[in-house]
Nucleic acid binder design. Structure first.
Length: 330
DNA sequence: GGGGCTATCCCTACAACGGG
DNA sequence: CCCGTTGTAGGGATAGCCCC
């Protein structure tokens, strides 16, 4: 609504969140008034109110932006509130231990300096190439724990990596034997130190060593700056909304698949299937209906029903059951 | 620890039969 | 004729075992 209203007023917004929108200062009051009739209280409490003033906005992509002051070639951030987001880099550990307190501000400073050509990509290279992108994770599942089997071997219990311990990972840069080498290391407060010590390869479990296996922070930062927005069309300037065309439906119920693996495996879209409802639907099918859905033989349906009745479970992985799944639920 | 073999289980296809 | 039931055969997946 705010977006549409701004359009009517002949303006555009820079970005928005669930409860805020960044608009040209001279349109702020007018927009706030537009929403005021929606006030549910019996007192006149403003729903929206102008907050930050006369700031610059620099946006790379969704959730990657900074609000800042720019005066006389100097970049400054607000003092009381953090107005920059390192979304997508927030998982990184502080690359400057004991020296730079607010390292995220430091990186944003450099990103903006690069924009104003106060520094060059080469300067970024120099400043960050001997620092590495390192994340801190937790041994949250048995699968993660098993990665450390080799490292734990023959070590006293005290020195082993145990469930719910932290550990450190870097990002793959080198491919060996068709597999990307992903360094894993035990936790230490001096994060950058792991670069110069032996580590375990995430996939092979082999112990390796060498800084060439670690992703330099300079690369991460330059890559970060070039990250394209993918929810909007366009490259630079005011981007256009994309249109969505639904090509299909996926049934979402209340029961999740592979709950135990989810902390590790959240790359694909998560599909939830309500097993109980599927069972009920299959039990309610007549052979005639099942045949239309692709199950040729009555006996096949009968067997499915028998298994549901007898064992109370159903295997969602079989060919015939899948046929039914695809069609019953959409 | 990996590869190959085998027993076993699960699933589906097909046939036959009986009841409504 | 439709539907449910039962028996049999065979394919595919998997676990367990052996060997190297």
């Amino acid at each position: 609504m705010a977006e549409a209203r701004l359009k009517e007023l002949g303006a555009i917004h820079a970005y928005m969140d669930t409860d805020s929108v960044f608009v040209p200062p001279d349109k702020a009051q007018e927009l706030a008034e537009f929403f005021q009739p929606l006030n549910p209280y019996n007192m006149d409490i403003p729903l929206l109110k102008p907050e930050k003033k006369d700031l610059w906005f620099y946006g790379i992509a969704s959730k990657r932006y900074a609000l800042y002051y720019y005066e006389n070639g100097k970049i400054k951030f607000m003092e009381d509130e953090r107005s920059y987001k390192l979304h997508g880099l927030g998982h990184l550990t502080n690359p400057f231990p004991n020296s730079v307190e607010d390292w995220q501000a430091e990186i944003w400073q450099d990103i903006l300096k690069l924009h104003y050509r106060l520094i060059t990509e080469r300067d970024i290279e120099e400043k960050y190439s001997n620092l590495y992108a390192i994340s801190q994770l937790t041994v949250s599942t048995s699968i993660v724990l098993s990665r450390f089997k080799k490292l734990n071997e023959r070590k006293p219990w005290k020195e082993q990596i145990k469930p719910f311990n932290f550990f450190l990972v870097s990002f793959q840069v080198i491919i060996e034997d068709d597999k990307a080498v992903k360094p894993l290391a035990p936790f230490t407060k001096d994060y950058q130190k792991i670069v110069y010590e032996p580590f375990i390869d995430y996939d092979s479990g082999e112990v390796k060593e060498g800084s060439q296996y670690f992703k330099p922070l300079s690369r991460t930062i330059l890559h970060y700056v070039e990250h394209m927005e993918n929810k909007f069309d366009g490259d630079i300037g005011v981007l256009k909304r994309k249109h969505i065309q639904a090509e299909g439906l996926v049934y979402i119920g209340k029961e999740a698949n592979n709950i135990e693996d989810q902390p590790l495996d959240v790359i694909g879209a998560q599909v939830f299937v309500n097993e109980e409802e599927i069972k009920q639907k299959i039990l309610g099918l007549t052979p005639e209906e099942a045949r239309k859905l692709g199950v040729k033989h009555r006996s096949t349906l009968k067997r499915m029903k028998d298994r549901i009745m007898k064992d109370g479970k159903i295997s969602l992985d079989t060919k015939e059951v899948k046929k039914l799944l695809n069609r019953i639920l959409t």
